[in-house]
Design a protein around this nucleic acid. Structure first.
Lengths: 236, 236
DNA sequence: CGGCTGATTGAATCGCCTCAAAGAGCGTGG
DNA sequence: CCACGCTCTTTGAGGCGATTCAATCAGCCG
């Protein structure tokens, strides 16, 4: 991968932070970006470390986890391709960032990235808009954690995955059963939903018993009755 | 209150969004800001409404609440003087914003505010930094909601209040008991912590019984043993 | 065929919620 | 001045949902 072609073959070129930029901004970013691959389970950064870089996520799924001093963990965010990763303008990292599936990032060292942001107003605007969006996501997630039952959390998560899967989801015929590949393990799902792994498993079993979903593989879910699933998600 | 003096007597002039601005930016903001007072319990904005304004909070305390479609509510944020209030660049409001105590705001209609932000890079930078800060706050809150016990939530909240109270807190002598005025009612505390009002009350009773706090008034708390309180907050 | 990891299931417990009632603080009006 | 009604808080009893602890099961690789 040479530097001058780093953007031209970018899978998320038009959806990522860079998407709305003109040639000038793109060239500036291009100059400092480096590709990096992560294998499933590998960490991009650890909470508490000095914060040396930000990134765009090109492919794969990442989770952000925070932990209490005594070791209980919770995923405070999940990131999909084209999302912006990291904490610009922060000296220390507050979250551990881990690849949930194999992933590819476009990594920017933080100091030059911040300089480029400062020099290019359209880029700064995009960063602001994305940050505002992440803040809304985070607050939506809070409502979920604080006020929804295990049943609602799991059903809602499956619907989110289905919505996110988009083209990768498959159905036999229009409006028929929808089969998706879960991006996370049961344990990660529990982490994300503020539950235990056993509770997640039991809720899935319950949904399966009700005929609402089927689980052909452990990471594969078929939504057989999306209306009933939405019902249980409390998405009235 | 005339427009040309709106900033000069501002109580949070140096801590708010405007704090880091030069004369030019300040004049631009000054031109569009209007003071507004809210009485305790009064709402500044409702979730679902068109989003017509943002503001700086000058005095008092606000809460942001979100609700599930079936009516369960949770406070997803709490704001103190000098905080920035609202969702710039959003067409519709996602939260209900309510005054928890009497409050005063410096309100900016959204379209001109966004124009001023676009025209003044230092202002946009400040807004970005504040948004990043709110995102971190929100994620800290998520960890609390998802992984902490009622005991830890209540103890932690009291410590937060004490830290926030700063000069308004009083002690008889250095390192002695610290007395603070709670900015919220029991019900609002429950809303903020993802608990019920009864659970909050019971936890306070437990802390009182352990001699860790005293409650001379219903909204007044004396921290008699802050180390023990930190212990119960799980802030190891 | 073992051994490993991740998922499922079961039984028992515990923490928080729900429902209900009593108590405290406070302004109003007789 | 005190009785009344209102709101907020506290306390109690009981139930439910999620966790904990433990065992079994399924898939996968050596």
């Amino acid at each position: 991968m040479t530097r001058d072609q780093i953007c031209s073959d970018c899978a998320v070129r038009h959806r990522a932070l860079c998407g709305a930029l003109g040639d000038e901004e793109l060239t500036a970013l291009n100059g400092i970006g480096r590709r990096r691959r992560l294998r499933r389970g590998e960490a991009f950064a650890w909470s508490g470390e000095p914060n040396g870089s930000c990134a765009n996520l090109l492919s794969g799924v990442l989770k952000l986890t925070a932990a209490t001093p005594d070791g209980r963990e919770l995923a405070v965010g999940i990131q999909y391709p084209a999302d912006f990763v990291g904490q610009p303008f922060a000296e220390t990292r507050d979250y551990t960032i881990t690849a949930v599936s194999d992933a590819e990032l476009c990594v920017f060292p933080r100091p030059p990235f911040e300089r480029v942001v400062g020099d290019h107003p359209p880029l700064e605007r995009q960063l602001l808009l994305r940050t505002l969006g992440m803040l809304d996501d985070s607050r939506r997630q809070m409502l979920m954690l604080g006020r929804r039952s295990a049943q609602e959390k799991v059903a809602g998560f499956l619907l989110d995955c289905a919505a996110r899967a988009g083209s990768k989801a498959s159905r036999a015929y229009a409006d028929g059963p929808l089969t998706i590949e879960l991006p996370v393990s049961r344990g990660e799902m529990a982490e994300l939903l503020g539950l235990t792994i056993e509770t997640v498993s039991r809720q899935l079993t319950k949904l399966r018993a009700a005929g609402i979903i089927a689980t052909p593989g452990v990471r594969t879910i078929t939504i057989r009755d999306s209306a009933a699933l939405a019902e249980r998600a409390g998405t009235a």
